[in-house]
Simulated scan of single mutants.
Amino acid sequence: MSHEILQPEGWAKPIGYANGIKARGTFLQVGGQIGWDETCSFPSDDFVDQVELALKNIVRVLQEGGAKPEHIVQMTWYFTDREAYRSGMKRIGAAYRAIIGRHFPPMAAVQVVALMEDRAKIEIVASAVIPGPS
């Protein structure tokens, strides 16, 4: 694999993300994905349901570019309700592992006042590197 998780010596191991990652290959950027379907409709206003759809949308864009979830090297999560994020952590973790797998790249999570789509509760941006020669 051309991805290497970076864990500085002596640092506590993070849970659910990495401190850093080193990769070589073709860069792929996924624009912010929200919890709507392919018709731009929101099937649910539930926070975790929207997380699940946003993650599925990311995987679909990755596939379109020839990448897989394990090629993700960075994710930034923007959400409108920090408490919904915190209280949904178990369900979010289960959805994440079901869709992305046990790959935990560097991530940031940020509460924002609003997202561009009124019904959106989460928007996730992802970057990936498709492995190339070492």
Results as ranks from 00 to 15, higher is better:
Gly32Pro: 02
Phe47Ile: 07
Gly65Phe: 11
Val30Leu: 01
Lys13Val: 13
Ile5Val: 14
Ala23Lys: 04
Glu64Asp: 10
Ala94Gln: 13
Leu62Asn: 02
Lys13Tyr: 08
Gly101Glu: 01
Ile92Val: 12
Trp36Ile: 10
Val51Gln: 01
Ile100Ser: 08
Ala126Trp: 03
Val48Glu: 04
His103Cys: 04
Pro131Thr: 07
Ile72His: 06
Met107Asn: 09
Asp46Cys: 07
Ile5Pro: 05
Val113Ser: 13
Gly65Lys: 08
Gly132Phe: 07
Ile58Asn: 00
Leu6Cys: 03
Thr26Cys: 01
Val110Asn: 13
Pro106Val: 02
Ile124Gly: 04
Cys40Thr: 13
Asp118Trp: 01
Met107Ala: 14
Val73Thr: 13
Phe42His: 00
Asn19Glu: 10
Ile21Gly: 02
Ile124Ala: 01
Gly20Arg: 05
Pro133Cys: 03
Glu52Met: 11
Phe27Glu: 11
Pro131Ser: 06
Ala12Tyr: 09
Arg60Phe: 06
Phe47Asp: 03
Ala67Ser: 11
Lys13Met: 12
Phe79Glu: 09
Arg119Gln: 15
Gly32Arg: 01
Leu28Arg: 13
Phe104Asp: 11
Val59Gly: 10
Cys40Trp: 13
Ile92Gly: 05
Ile58Ser: 05
Gly35Tyr: 00
Gln29Pro: 10
Val61Gln: 03
Leu115Gly: 07
Tyr96Leu: 08
Tyr85Lys: 05
Tyr85Leu: 11
Ala18Glu: 10
Glu4Lys: 12
